[in-house]
Design a protein around this nucleic acid. Structure first.
Lengths: 152, 152
DNA sequence: GAGATTGTGGGAAATTGTGGGAAATTGCAT
DNA sequence: ATGCAATTTCCCACAATTTCCCACAATCTC
């Protein structure tokens, strides 16, 4: 499983194309070729996966049979909703589908943030307000994280 | 087994024809040719299969013996009953049978969503309400999924 | 600073989505 | 059987989108 590192400022052009920074592209495993998967994130951002990692994610979902229950079907849908295959063009750019641009409210200025095997894509303004935490809140969040991690 | 990726906004024209997006068509295995199977989904949507995957699906059903119970027979009948073979025309469109249009309440605006080896077809409005979950429900669903996965 | 690489923009060609006309086929009723 | 209506198929045409390509600007490397 891939583990990406880094945070990058990028621009979207008028056509909704995003140029993948070379520092990030260098981290893609060979096998990626030029195909990625974009999906909606839980927050107001998009998420990029290598195709392989995406298939791993969904394989987990698909291991559970659809006959089982409506809730299972619903869960799978919610989870995969929005996913799109995207291909890099000759200039290492991907075209972000319109729908997703709108969802994440992406303007020209965006940020790419590595997060494990995922890469999040935020509008710069949105991202900054998301990161805007004071020390007290941060330590509270850390505490919560710790608790939830230990209770599984 | 095929694993489709993607979510697509499409339009049905007045004749009830659905143009299969090229991104999706590109994911069909060669063998598909231009023949698909449409069936009713459990929810208010339709489901597309490659012919091959449909045959697998029915094979699974038929592995359960009809002698078993009336309910088994009934379920098989109802499940299989809605299935239709459809062929793509020269413009990669399929004609959705009237009955199925009505069943899923499809209007002009529809959505195609990959779901494992199936492709679901929703009316846009219906789909959006299906996806509309709050955080509490989501975490409940996730929990359910987790349980059911582990009990197989 | 010079040369290579990378990011950005945009024009033009190719592909795709969409609509609709008209022929071919089907089903139904007379 | 024959004619009519409805459906389906096949075809062409236009608009929108996507892809491909080239060129210039910015940045990095040596």
């Amino acid at each position: 499983m891939t583990a990406f590192i880094g945070e990058f400022n990028c621009k979207l052009d008028e056509k909704g194309r995003l140029s993948i920074p070379s520092k990030l592209r260098a981290q893609f495993p060979e096998a990626v070729g030029n195909t990625l998967v974009v999906n909606r994130g839980f927050e107001k951002c998009l998420v990029l996966y290598t195709k392989e990692d995406w298939l791993d994610e969904t394989a987990k979902l698909n291991s559970v049979d659809d006959f089982m229950s409506p809730d299972i079907r619903r869960f799978k849908r919610i989870f995969t909703n929005g996913a799109n295959l995207v291909q890099m063009d000759g200039a290492q750019r991907i075209l972000i589908p319109k729908k997703l641009l709108e969802y994440a409210e992406l303007t020209a200025e965006v940020i790419l943030v590595a997060n494990g095997n995922k890469i999040e894509l935020w509008d710069q303004a949105v991202y900054e307000s998301e990161l805007n935490v004071d020390a007290a809140e941060m330590s509270q969040l850390a505490q919560l994280f710790h608790q939830q991690r230990n209770q599984g």
